[in-house]
Design a protein around this nucleic acid. Structure first.
Lengths: 218, 218
DNA sequence: ATTACTAGTCTTCGAGTAC
DNA sequence: TGTACTCGAAGACTAGTAA
């Protein structure tokens, strides 16, 4: 029995990620075991299972496995994606709420660099206040929220000493009325549950926000 | 151990579907057992597990369960959705290919009703040929394909005898060059792996298509 | 009608180890 | 280094049944 690999879904997902859906990957069972937090032996068994069900294609070499998803495997994931999309589509997140947090104040420095400010002026209509308002949000809702917004690109640049990376900004309203923008570094390495807002206003002052104040962006 | 309910994912998904994410549902363990093709006892155990992990909220009554997803439960699904979205986002399907199939010829009758033809003329620019070209496609790719297209609504209407339902149409090109439109009844009950195309042309003749001919829409 | 405990069976797990 | 077999333990399953 066991027609559908619900239990092995996550292994399939990891293979999809690593292979970028369409390529082959080389991976040993112990490597994958680390990703899944299970034993090498179990991965071996699971890969056999997925191959037997024709969800993956697999060549076993002395040095590891060459693995790729089959059409059937991709469809299995796509079907799951469609189910989830359908469930969440009705509840489009056009609002994101969270609490105001204090950042490290680094944003301030970067935001105020002329290389960025000039672009803000051109693309957002105004220079922005040197500082960001940090809001702690549910990171899982961020994707859906931003997917509805227009992505505006901010280019990176260099000065004599160092270079500054590109970023994306998205125009939003804070608490339904104040013009602001979400800014996300293109090569992000900071926590995704913190949303950084910029604005021509000093948002914290303008809205008299203290730490942990509940706000929403839309 | 067993921190994440990979094995019970499908039950969580079913609860999400039935509850439309945010509502409570009433369901007995044996009902859910049918959906999952497992025993009533297993559902009982799985529900306890999900509740213990705080993925669902559950009230056990003499007549069944009142179940709703917790924020944590929704996040679990949302996270999975985001992973899948990410995997498939690079491979945007702006092309859908499949084989020409013979339909039952019903489409012809409906398509040609003035109540529909007048709307086609207004919204697609032309009356359409009375007949549909049926293409067998991969149903799992349909969602992604259509999500990139503009949805045009065709209203339902009634005559003395009966009523005819609303539909959606999406402008596409067949084989990269012929103007056509996908038509999907709003209350669909026909197989989703068959795509029905309408056009001002008789597509079958114009492209000299025989059954099983490979075509693509974009 | 329910839910869910018990108990026996079947499945899945990973340590050890062969190749 | 690899993969994957054996096998004892742990976990998950269902039938019977109590509440």
């Amino acid at each position: 029995m066991n027609t559908f690999p619900e239990k092995d879904f996550y292994l399939l997902l990891i293979i999809a990620k690593k292979s970028e859906l369409n390529n082959s990957i080389k991976a040993s069972t112990s490597e994958l075991a680390l990703d899944l937090n299970i034993s090498q032996q179990s991965v071996s068994r699971k890969l056999s299972f997925l191959a037997e069900k024709e969800l993956i294609e697999r060549k076993v070499l002395a040095s590891g496995n060459i693995i790729s998803l089959t059409e059937k495997g991709k469809n299995f994931l796509l079907k799951r994606k469609n189910e989830l999309d359908k469930i969440f589509s009705s509840k489009k997140n056009n609002k994101l709420s969270g609490k105001v947090k204090s950042g490290l104040g680094e944003g301030k420095y970067y935001i105020n660099l002329p290389g960025y400010q000039n672009q803000f002026k051109k693309k957002l209509g105004n220079r922005v206040f040197p500082g960001t308002l940090n809001i702690k949000i549910n990171e899982f809702e961020l994707n859906d929220f931003l997917s509805e917004k227009k992505k505006i690109s901010i280019k990176g640049f260099s000065d004599k000493q160092r270079s500054f990376g590109p970023a994306f900004v998205f125009k939003v309203k804070l608490n339904g009325r104040i013009d602001a923008a979400v800014i996300i570094p293109e090569r992000t390495n900071h926590p995704e549950n913190i949303l950084e807002l910029i604005s021509s206003f000093n948002l914290r002052k303008k809205l008299k926000l203290k730490d942990n104040a509940l706000v929403f962006v839309s």
